[in-house]
Design a binder for these strands. Structure first.
Lengths: 119, 119
DNA sequence: CCGCATCCCGACCGATACTG
DNA sequence: CAGTATCGGTCGGGATGCGG
């Protein structure tokens, strides 16, 4: 981490990851399999087409995700993680690990407080 | 990373890190020095008191940041990173590294496109 | 010095309907 | 099947002013 605040670039990385659905989209794509639009929709039960499209476009823009259109009827579009996109994997992994520990920690505190807190 | 999507916890971690100013607050606090409220304000030139307070409260809530009040006139409050909060350091670091590579990558592409793109 | 309360705006996201 | 267009709600966050 640089001593000079101006050179901090976590925000850049966060911009690529953040968004209500981006982490989950990336998660599924990082499994390796290319996925069609509607396959992704099924995997993200609560996402709307709109949001899926928008987030995929952003990820595509940053070359984290590759979009392949098969010119046929009915249309077929496949999304896959790029080699570059795979470089995000360790970060997601680290985030996941920390998140896991964090929820467990919260659970513990909750348990402890339920005895002392009479409010 | 778990095979089961339901167990993914990056979102939890992201919640703790995300917010317009949280990464920068954490960055400054991770330097080790406890900082007073107005010191943080000076370090984050564009933040409003409101936002600084809110974000600090959230970080305090999750025990990432410790708040110490010195009962004196004029008031003095010091914020510091907790031991637990320090566990975020590797993540911020990884995020920073990736962000750095990402901006450089973008720079390159921009340079390449400026010759081919006549739009 | 530190912080809360209020008002307000714009971005993000959801719902729905329509198209090639 | 894979999108685009439009409308509207919600909410993070900015500006300002007051209080201990």
């Amino acid at each position: 981490m640089p001593k000079n605040p101006a050179q901090c670039q976590f925000v850049v990385a966060l911009d690529s990851i953040v968004g209500k659905w981006k982490p989950m989209i990336l998660y599924h794509l990082l499994q390796g399999q290319p996925l069609r639009f509607n396959e992704l929709r099924r995997l993200l039960p609560d996402i709307t087409q709109r949001m899926l499209t928008l987030h995929l476009r952003e990820l595509e823009e940053e070359e984290i995700v590759k979009r392949v259109v098969y010119p046929q009827i009915p249309p077929k579009v496949e999304y896959s993680i790029t080699e570059y996109g795979k470089s995000l994997s360790p970060i997601l992994e680290a985030l996941h690990q920390w998140g896991l520990a964090h929820v467990q920690r919260k659970q513990l505190h909750k348990g402890n407080n339920e005895q002392t807190e009479t409010d």
